[in-house]
């Protein structure tokens, strides 16, 4: 059951190109599930007006963390929240995922955040992970320590994660695969993985108004109907998602 709270930030640190915020919350641990996210905003502020949907990076008994990539004014303000200041938090939101014990994770850029959280719920697997620069490939060591085989690629050196997958397509055979990254990457990936799309699940990102199924702004076409990312997602079967 989701709640809306003003919660203190107890850590703000730079991780590669991102900002990691740790939020104190003793209750989230017992309710947050794999696939969930929160809406995040600044208290007593109407600028930005909308809260931002952000997935969990980790959740423990005392706190949870989120990873922020500065894209505009809103995320810039969030990234500057200091320790001791607070955030508005609405969540946990979305439909929980029952992750497999073993599977494939494919991350592009900040797409690593929810997959890092997902890896916590799994025993082992393979991570394919791409970013612009080598030094942007954050959390790869931590995921290795969780029993995953980690394959990385960077655009500055060799190419994108889609290139990496096309070289390693057979890894996907008989496995459940989970993808998170920019929509352009997901579309390209769908184009090259063919039948494996049937066992592939994708984290969809949409602009959100409410996060609670109220405004119908976060629509995604699944088969022939619109579903709501905040209610029915954010994870959908890749072969069912129709991209524009």
């Amino acid at each position: 059951m989701a709640s809306f709270q003003i919660l203190p930030v107890i850590e703000n640190r730079v991780v590669g190109p991102y900002t990691l915020l740790r939020v104190e919350d003793k209750k989230m641990h017992s309710i947050a599930k794999c696939g969930h996210f929160v809406m995040v905003g600044l208290p007593d502020s109407m600028d930005p007006f909308l809260l931002r949907p952000i997935s969990f990076l980790s959740v423990d008994e005392k706190s949870f963390t989120i990873l922020i990539k500065v894209k505009g004014k809103g995320t810039e303000k969030l990234s500057k929240v200091k320790e001791g200041e607070s955030l508005k938090i609405l969540g946990p939101l979305g439909k929980a995922l029952e992750p497999p014990e073993n599977g494939i994770l494919i991350a592009g850029g900040i797409g690593i955040a929810p997959l890092y959280y997902q890896s916590e719920w799994m025993k082992s697997g393979v991570l394919f992970y791409g970013a612009k620069r080598e030094k942007d490939l954050v959390f790869k060591e931590e995921i290795k320590d969780r029993g995953f085989i980690v394959n990385t690629i960077s655009e500055e050196k060799r190419g994108t994660v889609v290139d990496l997958i096309s070289e390693n397509l057979n890894f996907l055979k008989g496995k459940k695969t989970f993808v998170c990254g920019p929509e352009s990457m997901i579309k390209e990936l769908k184009g090259i993985i063919g039948d494996y799309a049937k066992d592939t699940f994708v984290y969809i990102e949409r602009r959100m108004g409410c996060g609670l199924g109220g405004c119908k702004s976060c629509a995604v076409k699944v088969y022939f109907e619109y579903k709501l990312v905040c209610q029915d997602g954010p994870i959908f079967p890749l072969h069912e998602v129709k991209f524009d």
Partner: peptide
């Protein structure tokens, strides 16, 4: 089914939507 996405964004001191009466 409503309009294609994006359907919402911020404006200074508010929001603008194009939901298209999805219901």
């Amino acid at each position: 089914e409503g309009n294609p996405t994006p359907r919402i964004t911020e404006t200074p001191c508010g929001v603008i939507n194009s939901i298209g009466l999805a219901n």
